[in-house]
Structure formats: C-alpha cells, structure tokens
Design a protein around this nucleic acid. Structure first.
Lengths: 214, 214
DNA sequence: CTGGATCCCGTATGATACTG
DNA sequence: CAGTATCATACGGGATCCAG
C-alpha cells in the first residue's frame, strides 16, 4: 500500500487521498473558474512553491481530475468532468470556512479567482430568480469582476464593462455578505464606494449574495 | 503569519487551514456518528499514530470544532455545533470519492463509523419518504449496524436487533449501492447473504441507498 | 487500562536557484 | 514561460515510554 493511503475502504478516505494534499483543493478552486496556465495558477497562489505546484498538477492529472490541454502553442490546465464534480465540495467548504473568517490581516490577499468562487458560494439562485436581471461591476481589492445575474443564473467574468451598479470595496465586503453590515451603512461608512449607478442597487446585491455568519 | 497558513482572505482557504491537515476530516467523520473516546477514535483509524491523534484533537479543539466532555469519569470528544456543520462537506466528499473507489484491496478495512457515514451519504430521503418504514440489520464486514428508515428519517446505530431484513455483505455492497449489481443478482452471486426476512426487501434497500458510480 | 507524551527517522513541504 | 534541481526544515509515522 502506498504510504500516504489511509487503508480504509471508504469514499471520504478515497477523496482525501486524491485531493487532501496541501494546495490541491485550492488549485481545483481556481480551475473551477476556468482553464488556467501554469503561470496564472502560480499567480493565484503566490505562496505555493513552484516545485509543489508542478507536483500537484501531475498528481491531479494522474487522478483524472485535470488535464493538460494545448491551446494554440501554450498549455492550459483544465478540469475534467470528474474534477468539475468537486464544485459542491468546494462550495460547501467555502460556506463553512466563511464563518471562521475574522477580519482580514495585512498579509492576506484577495485573488480574482478566489473572489469569483466566493461569489458563487454566496449566490442565492432562488432569491435572484425573483429579482430583475442586474449587472454589477465590482472592484474588490485587485479583482475587477463583472457580475451578471439573470434570473437564477450567475456569470462572473474578469474585467470591466457596462453595469447597472459599479462599486469598489475592500475585504469589509464580508460583513455586507454576512448581513452584519446593512447596505446603506456600508456606503455611509465607506466600506463600499459607489462609483456609478444607483446606490440602492446594493440592497439587491446583498439580497442576491448572502452567507450566514458565525 | 503562521507558516501553515495560505495567506489568502478566502473561505475555502480558511476551511483548509482548520480541517485540511492529514487525518483531521476523518476524525470529524467518525465524530459525526457520535461522541467517541480517545481509544475509540484510535480504533476507528488504526493507522493514525497516537501523537498525531493527540495533536489533531488539540488543534480541532482550539479551532472550536470539537470539545472534550467529561462523561462520568471518562473523557469523550464530541463535535461542537460548528463542527457538526461540516456534515455537508463530509457527505459531498464521500459522494465524490465513492466514484473513485475501485474494488477493495486486502489491506483496506471497513469500520462501523465509516460505514455509517457512507449510508448517510447514500441515503435518499425523497425516495424513502414514499416507502414503508423499514428496519435493516446489516453485517458489513466487522460492522454490525441497525439501519432504521422511517419516512425521510434515517437512524443508524451499532449492534443488532429485530429487523425486517437481516443480511450480511462484504465490500461488494458498493456495487449494489451504485446500481451496477441488481439486488437479486447480489443475492444469487452471494455478494449479499440474506440471513432473515424476505430477500425482496433488498430492492427497497437498494432504492433507499444509492450513489452514482463513475 | 486509558490517554496521552517522547524520541528518532523518513518524507513532504518550502525557499531558492537554475534551465530548455 | 514552464517548469527542474538543490538544499533546509517541519511535519507525519512508528515505536516506546509514562502518568492517572
């Protein structure tokens, strides 16, 4: 038996053998947003040593979770269908871990891909289905994301564009998502800065994206 | 920053910092079944070194996931409410890992607690709600479990007792759960041995407990 | 006997430098 | 850009030992 196996005939055990190693599920998190090149993955996980990144990519490939795909002269890594089935796991972990997030510390960064998955985690399709289609352009730290909500469908893409509401926020956005901070208070205190559009649309945003706090 | 932190302000990252260490989620898995003593946890994870077990229990306690509770002179470890909120994570992982379980190897064991959580993972409350209440007494390797299904409610307890259907099975039970093996074929080939009750009740069992295969 | 603590060692991880 | 090579260290694994 391989040394790192748990020696149990059990689905949870098997899952942890495949994606339980350090950094593995964070790579899956970023690849759930879309295919990524090696350097993009490294940029999204600045603290991963490059040898570990290479090792994980190889292991996840051997496990059938991702594949290397040539895209016109460059290699991108993309999840296989089996790898994409990890999305419920990642979202469940994100919702659980959200409650244990304190206030951000200086050295903690926010990446576009992690923010995208956080928005997917917080998205409430049943609530959104009853609201008008809305486009939000957000600047969350270094992440510029265009968030399109149309009925129960959510699409988050990088970059800018025309939007019903454009706003910038720091990590304090967490308190808006958790409901600890009301939308109007968030604007009044400067946690959220409305750059364009009607500020009342932030109410809709907070209704659409919500996660229970601790 | 602690060396083992990922340096990102992200719920998934936070979750992995709390329960991403080796063995941690397996301890949670067993504690989701019920409070356990130190020696019971060690017995359920025969390959965990005792120092690691002690270290994990301390870390999980510091993280607010479990607590030490004195129960009439002995200490038991039990999940806190926040720890119990990991159940969706564990079930999602179990369902995903189920698809990657091959055939069992000799050194792979089945424990009562892991089997209990596997049954919870495979349980289909919406299907069970339309079926009569049923008690199954199962012997799955070393695990004797009494499985009570009543409407959409499932209760799995250790031990024996009166049941509508009593059966024994080895790890081949996986192919029954996945639908690869029909209930009558499972009995005919000896994968499942009916010890008491009408064998047709195994159909009901297979309808109630089902997980998609690869 | 339970519930650990201690010791030693191997391996995985991490930091950094280097290369096709 | 996409990794590989090298070295230091911290964690995991196994055996043993200890206190209540």
């Amino acid at each position: 038996m391989a040394a790192r196996e748990y020696g149990q005939y059990c689905g949870i055990t098997r899952a942890l053998e495949l994606i339980g190693e350090r950094w593995a599920l964070l790579l899956v998190r970023d690849l759930l947003v879309g295919p990524r090149r090696y350097s993009e993955l490294a940029a999204g996980l600045p603290r991963i040593p490059t040898n570990i990144l290479a090792a994980r990519l190889k292991e996840l490939q051997d496990a059938g979770i991702l594949r290397r795909a040539p895209r016109s002269r460059v290699i991108v890594y993309e999840l296989t269908p089996y790898g994409r089935e990890l999305e419920p796991v990642v979202l469940a972990l994100g919702a659980w871990g959200f409650k244990a997030m304190g206030d951000p510390r200086d050295e903690q960064i926010i990446t576009p891909d992690s923010m995208t998955m956080a928005l997917r985690t917080a998205f409430r399709p049943l609530v959104a289905a009853d609201l008008p289609a809305t486009v939000y352009a957000t600047r969350l730290g270094p992440a510029e994301l265009l968030v399109r909500v149309d009925g129960a469908a959510l699409a988050v893409t990088r970059g800018d564009g025309p939007a019903d509401l454009t706003f910038a926020a720091g990590p304090g956005i967490r308190r808006l998502i958790s409901g600890e901070l009301a939308p109007d208070r968030a604007i009044a205190t400067g946690v959220v800065e409305v750059l364009h559009g009607r500020g009342e649309l932030l109410d809709r945003f907070a209704s659409t994206f919500h996660l229970a706090a601790a």
